[in-house]
Design a protein around this nucleic acid. Structure first.
Lengths: 238, 238
DNA sequence: TAGTGGTCTAGACCACAGC
DNA sequence: CTGTGGTCTAGACCACTAA
């Protein structure tokens, strides 16, 4: 990164992960950090504010910034992260099998989405396995108006890598909804489910930085393999 | 609020909710806003940055801040929010029944929590119903070292209101984990589940602003009534 | 070229913790 | 009292958008 505050954030995050700043200890004060990094205090505060929202530290007024013990929550299952990134980051032994790749209209009713006209998309169906066990079945609808074409090779590797690094798209935000439902027969068979076993479904809509909606995703998870980990800060309802 | 940027945030959020700033329109520019509110640009930027993380707006460099259409996501099921707050905010017709209120040790193994000594807590078991249907069974363990005593009246009303407004505690952050599991017989009966039906379990640990851990919660949800809605921004893994 | 948001600065004053 | 983080300012320069 070429941003100062981002570089400082990275540096501090690394040092916390490597226990250069141990859990329960205090970081140097903001004034000290600004001298250390040769920058202004506000810039330091931007970096610290990132660490705060990501659960690395807690700031206590009059005392300092204390390192939290939440490393195990660092893999963002919340947030927007591709399966390949998770795989690399957690060093899982995972595979992806492309079951279907064709043009389809987005099933808008499934996503509670209103549109005056049908949305043409590339439909990708992929089965994710870890250690040869089926974990997730992903149904992706990528709007043709944004991404005209997707090759089989890209679908088997990583859609996000293709979007961001080949096409230069910037993925910005998403809405997600998690529910528990009965699987279709196809889903039950592919995920090797027992009878009467429900599945966890995560439906999301993903947007680019210019607010263009470009992707609908339905992820069908095996219930016994599903786990969603989150870090939240208290915010009062007004 | 007596913070400028917070007051500005509230004002802008209200105006967005009341469509004074309609969806898909641009807010006034940062310089204009700073003149409007008689403040510096950095202060405006803090307010806008809050709106950004909460999904109200999207900022586009060179163009402006555009209002997003995500009002339906404003009830933070993610985040830390008490049942009573949700109830009031969404105007649900809900009731809470206190099934148990007694001293117990925290079942640490359920929460993957390591502790050299047992943790003494007040155990509260509560059944939440909406329109007379059981929705959630909450098991709360509140550490005696932080809150020595909890009355039946408080348990029936709102723990968070008691903690924050009576005791002056400041709830700051929490870790959460969502899984799907088989219910105990008691849970199946209380939630009026069908046979073979799994439940969604949300386990969380809640902390005060001075990083004191003070509460363990296990929420058992009826799968057909469970829904978790989230707004996420893309963040790359480094 | 003018206007927008993104970054950064140097300094000010305040509220709070702890000695 | 000193040191901490919390807020706020007035100004600067940059990168990007759009006419």
């Amino acid at each position: 990164m070429r941003n100062k505050f981002n570089a400082i954030y990275q540096d501090l995050a690394d040092k916390i992960n490597h226990h250069n700043y141990p859990v329960d200890s205090y970081l140097p004060s903001e004034t000290q950090l600004s001298e250390l990094y040769g920058t202004s205090r506000e810039t330091i505060r931007k970096a610290l504010s990132e660490l705060l929202t990501n659960g690395f530290i807690q700031k206590i007024r009059g005392k300092g910034s204390i390192v939290l013990n939440l490393q195990r929550f660092n893999f963002p299952v919340s947030g927007i992260t591709s399966f390949k990134e998770l795989n690399n980051s957690l060093h899982m032994n995972s595979t992806t099998e492309v079951l279907c790749l064709e043009d389809q209209h987005v099933p808008l009713e499934k996503f509670d989405y209103q549109s005056s006209s049908p949305l043409l998309a590339t439909y990708v169906e992929r089965l994710r396995k870890t250690n040869n066990e089926p974990i997730v079945l992903d149904h992706d609808y990528i709007l043709k108006s944004v991404v005209p074409e997707i090759s089989h090779k890209v679908a088997a590797d990583s859609l996000y890598d293709y979007f961001e690094n080949q096409l230069g798209l910037t993925i910005s935000y998403a809405t997600k909804k998690i529910t528990v439902e009965s699987p279709t027969k196809e889903e039950a068979q592919l995920l090797e489910l027992n009878e009467h076993q429900d599945v966890v479904i995560v439906r999301s809509q993903t947007y680019l930085e210019d607010t263009t909606l470009f992707q609908f995703t339905e992820s069908v998870h095996r219930p016994d393999k599903f786990s969603f980990v989150d870090f939240a800060r208290r915010q009062k309802i007004n």
